[in-house]
Design a protein around this nucleic acid. Structure first.
Lengths: 210, 210
DNA sequence: TATTTTAAACTGAGCGCTCAGTCAAAAATT
DNA sequence: AATTTTTGACTGAGCGCTCAGTTTAAAATA
C-alpha cells in the first residue's frame, strides 16, 4: 500500500497515476461541482478503474483532501517566489500580482477554490487545510507591509489595515471573476488590484505598475 | 397541487410549511454543505415527511432553486431600500452598508451564498439565478455612481471603475468573513468598506460615515 | 348553523437506482 | 520470484422520488 502523503519511496508510475487522478478531480469538479463529482466520473476522466482511486487515496474524502493540498501547494509556490524581492513595496506588488498569474487565476482553478470554500463551512477538514494556507499567505503580506511602513516613518501607516485591504480587494476580484456574468479578465482584474494599491499608497503610485 | 411560484391563491398553511422547509434547507446547508444536504435531513429539520418536500417543490433541485430565489429576494429587499435616498453619494453609502446588515451578513447566510457560488460554475440553473440578481444590483450601483459623477463635473470620475471597485471590495470582505480564521466581524468589515470608499472619494471623505 | 362534500396537505413504506468502497485475481514493475 | 499496481465485478447503504392512503381544512349544501 502506498501512502497518500509525500512519500519518498513513491514509484514513478504511482506518482504519475496519482497526478492524473488529481487532475481528473479538478476537471470533474469544474464540470459537475463537488456534489456531482463521483468516483465513477473521476475514474472515467482519469481513464482508470474506481478501485485504483481508493487504492491510492483511501477514500473519496482523502482524494478531495489531497486535491485541495495540491491546489494550495501550487498557489504557495506562486506567491513564495515574490519573497525574494528585497524592496518591501515591490514585494507587496509581486505578492498581489502572483494572485493573477495564469496558472492560478483561470476558470477551472477558481472553480475549484470556490467549490472548496463552499463546502469548507460544513467540512472541518477542508476548513482546516484552507485556514492554514491562508494564515501563511497573510503573514507574508503583513510582514511585507510592516517592512514597507518602517521604510517611511514619517507617514501614518497601519500594516494590518493595509494588508487586510489588499487581500480583501484580491479576494473580491477573484469572486467577481468566478461568478460575474460580465466576464472580468484576469488582466483587467490585475489592473484593478494595482489601481487599488495606488489608491492605498498615493505617494508611491509611480512605483506601482499598471 | 400547489404551485411553487408566487401564487396569490397559496393557502396560509401551505405558505407557512414552505417557509419552514426553506428555512430547514438553509440550516441543513450550513450544517452539512450542499453535497451533504439530503431530502432526509431537510425533512427531519423541518419536522415533515420527505414526501411533502417533493409535493411542494417538485424535486430536490426545485427546492434548492426556490431557496436560492428567496435568499436573493431577501438580499434585494435590503439594498433596494437604499434607492429612496435622493443624494447620489449617500445612496452609494447606503447601498454598501446594506451588504453588511445583520439579516444579510451572518454566518449561515454567507455560508449559503458561498455554497451556491461553489456549485454555480457547474449548475447552469444556479448560475442563471445568481447572474440575474447580480446584474440588477450592479445596475443600481452604477446608476448611483453615474449620478454622483455628474454632480461634480470638474473631477475626473469613471462610474464603471468606481462601481467595480466598490463591489469588488464588498465581495472580498464577504469572502474573508466566510473563510477567514481570524474571524472578521461585520462591523469591522463595514468599517473597511467605508474606509475604501473614503480612499476612492477623498474629496468627500467627511460625508462618508465610519 | 350543522352537516356533507371536495380538495389540499401530508404521511411513510418502498421502488429503482447510484453511490462509495471491497476484494480476488491479473498485469506490470522491480 | 516478489512486490506493487491495476482491474472490474461486486456489495450494502443510502439516495431521490413515487404513490396509495390518511388527515386536515375549506366550500357547498341543507
Amino acid at each position: 500500500m502506498t501512502a497518500v502523503q509525500t512519500d519518498r519511496s513513491l514509484s514513478r508510475t504511482s506518482a504519475r497515476t496519482q497526478a492524473r487522478i488529481v487532475e481528473a478531480v479538478v476537471e470533474a469538479v469544474a464540470q459537475h461541482g463537488i456534489s456531482g463529482t463521483t468516483l465513477a466520473n473521476v475514474a472515467a476522466l482519469a481513464e482508470v478503474s474506481q478501485g485504483v482511486l481508493i487504492f491510492h487515496f483511501k477514500s473519496k474524502e482523502g482524494l478531495f483532501a489531497e486535491t485541495l493540498r495540491r491546489l494550495i501547494d501550487e498557489y504557495q509556490q506562486g506567491w513564495q517566489a515574490a519573497l525574494t524581492e528585497p524592496d518591501a513595496l515591490q514585494r507587496i506588488v509581486k505578492l498581489v500580482r502572483s494572485d493573477f498569474a495564469a496558472a492560478i487565476c483561470n476558470r477551472k482553478t477558481l472553480a475549484l477554490w470556490f467549490a472548496f470554500w463552499g463546502e469548507a463551512a460544513a467540512q472541518p477538514l477542508y476548513n482546516a487545510i484552507c485556514a492554514e494556507s491562508e494564515i501563511h499567505r497573510y503573514e507574508a503580506m503583513i510582514a511585507a507591509c510592516r517592512a514597507f511602513c518602517e521604510t517611511n516613518k514619517g507617514e501614518t501607516c497601519d500594516p494590518a489595515l493595509l494588508a487586510h485591504s489588499i487581500d480583501a480587494m484580491t479576494d473580491g476580484l477573484w469572486l467577481q471573476m468566478h461568478i460575474s456574468a460580465k466576464s472580468l479578465s484576469r488582466h483587467d482584474a490585475r489592473s484593478m488590484a494595482m489601481a487599488h494599491l495606488r489608491l492605498l499608497l498615493p505617494k508611491w503610485a509611480d512605483a506601482i505598475p499598471q
